[in-house]
Structure formats: structure tokens, C-alpha cells
Simulated assay, not measured.
Amino acid sequence: MFKKLLGATLICACAGTAQAGGEGFYVGGGIGQARYDDSLPSQIRDAYRGNSGYDFLSADLRDDTDQAWKIFGGYRFLPWLGVEFAWVDLGEVHSNYVLHSRVPLTNANATIDGLYNISGPSATVFGELDFTDNVSGIVRAGLYNAKTDYDESGTAASGRPHTYSHSESDTKATFGLGLNVRVNPQWDVRLDWDRYQHVGNRFALTDDGNGRFDHIDFVSMSVAYRFGQ
């Protein structure tokens, strides 16, 4: 998918004739793919190490990618400096883990499926460097307020259905790079890579310890409209 997005951006770059600079407001939106780091299984194993009620058997992140999207608006104070605010939906991923009960008379396995859905607003400051008259590179950094909706379902060691839900929000760092192509005075096409750091809380046997993703990478293709150009 990244190669397709890069190819489309390069085509726009070759076709573009507008100047890259210009202050003012802009709005836009983009779609792409989010990839989650795969440290969750080790977090679950560590949480159950030495537990008197359960033995850890296995854990995995069943899928570590999903479609993601964002909408954004920003302002360039100078041709090379601005701020951007966005709503980012990083999609959802699934986990699974299996435990063996040590409780007498039960002596059975518990199988748990987890579903993580992460979204929230971000605020970043960016710097922009012109490569040609219509192509520029962007470097940005800021904060992302990630809301994690976590849902569990499965079968308890007793054989009964198991369900659990919890939501939480935390604000963490984000940074990224972009390649911007100004197709005409009003419209830009942008290829972005963004990283969201330490989303969620490390897996623990607590209400809010549902798992932490050390980083989530989001590659996207966006279009943006500039006002007053």
C-alpha cells in the first residue's frame, strides 16, 4: 500500500505547476493504513507470570494492521511554519490469549479475544521545506489524545461466557514526515507517515491495564484545500 501511495504522490509531483509556498488556512482529509507494534503478547505473559490462579499458555495479536483515516485543518503562519489539528481514527486490531486455571475442580482453559479501537484528536507544529516550486517536505511533532475502546469476549475456565469492556484516554507524543505536492493554488496532495507513541496502559490485572502499543504507525494519502489562494 505504501508503494501505491508513494507512486500516486510522485505522479502528482510531476504534473504539478503551482508554487509550494503560501500562508493561510487549509482543511483536508486522508485515508491509509495503521500498523500496530506487536509487544502485546509479551505484556500478557509478563502479567500472568507467577500468578496463583492461572498459567499462561499463549497470546498473539491476530492482526496488526487496519484501515485508518483522518480529517484535519491548519494554518501556515509563514510559508515554512504552521500548526495543524486533526481527528485521527487508527482503526481496530484483535488479540487472543489462553490461560489454564489452577482452581481445583475447574482445571480448564480460559480463551479470551480482545478488540482495540483507537481514535482521538491531535495537535502538531510543522516545518516545511521546499524541494521544487510545487513539492515540499514536512516535519511535524506534537500531542495525540488517544481514546482506547477495549472489549473482551470469550470463554472463562468455568465454561461460562466472558465479556468485559473498558474505555480510557491518554495524551502522548506524536511525530511524522510528509511529502506535499501543490497541484494548483487551492489544492494539495500529501503523503504522510505519522507515529503515535505509547498508546494505552501496559497489560496488567487491573481495570485500566488492557495493553499498551509502544507505537502505532499511520501511512496515509491526503488532499487539502487552501483558502484565499
Rank of each mutant, 00 (worst) to 15 (best):
L10C: 10
A59L: 11
G137W: 03
G7C: 05
K70S: 06
A20W: 03
S169V: 04
Y144E: 01
I71E: 11
A108I: 03
S165T: 05
A18W: 01
F25P: 00
C14M: 13
P104N: 07
V139N: 09
Y75E: 08
V199K: 01
F77G: 08
L99A: 00
Y196Q: 06
Q229S: 15
I216Q: 07
G32S: 08
G176K: 05
D89C: 02
F227E: 04
T171I: 14
A224I: 01
H100P: 02
R140P: 00
G142L: 11
V139F: 15
L57Y: 06
I44F: 02
T111Y: 08
N201E: 14
I112N: 02
H162C: 00
F131T: 12
N96G: 04
T9S: 14
H94L: 06
E23F: 04
E92C: 01
N145P: 00
G53E: 13
A68S: 12
Q67D: 15
R49G: 07
D55S: 09
G120K: 08
A13K: 06
S136V: 10
D38V: 01
A123L: 15
S165P: 00
G73W: 12
P185Y: 07
D188L: 10
F126H: 10
L99K: 03
L205N: 12
N180E: 06
D207Q: 15
H100E: 12
G176F: 03
P121M: 11
R202C: 03
H100M: 07
S119W: 12
I138A: 12
K70M: 09
N180K: 13
R226V: 06
H215V: 02
L40F: 14
G28K: 04
H162E: 02
A8K: 11
S58C: 08
P161L: 08
D55A: 05
Q19E: 14
G176V: 03
C12P: 00
L143M: 13
D217R: 09
A173M: 11
I71V: 15
Y144V: 04
G53V: 08
T111M: 02
F72M: 15
G7V: 06
S153W: 03
R160N: 11
Y97P: 00
S158G: 12
G142H: 08
F213M: 07
A204Y: 12
I11H: 05
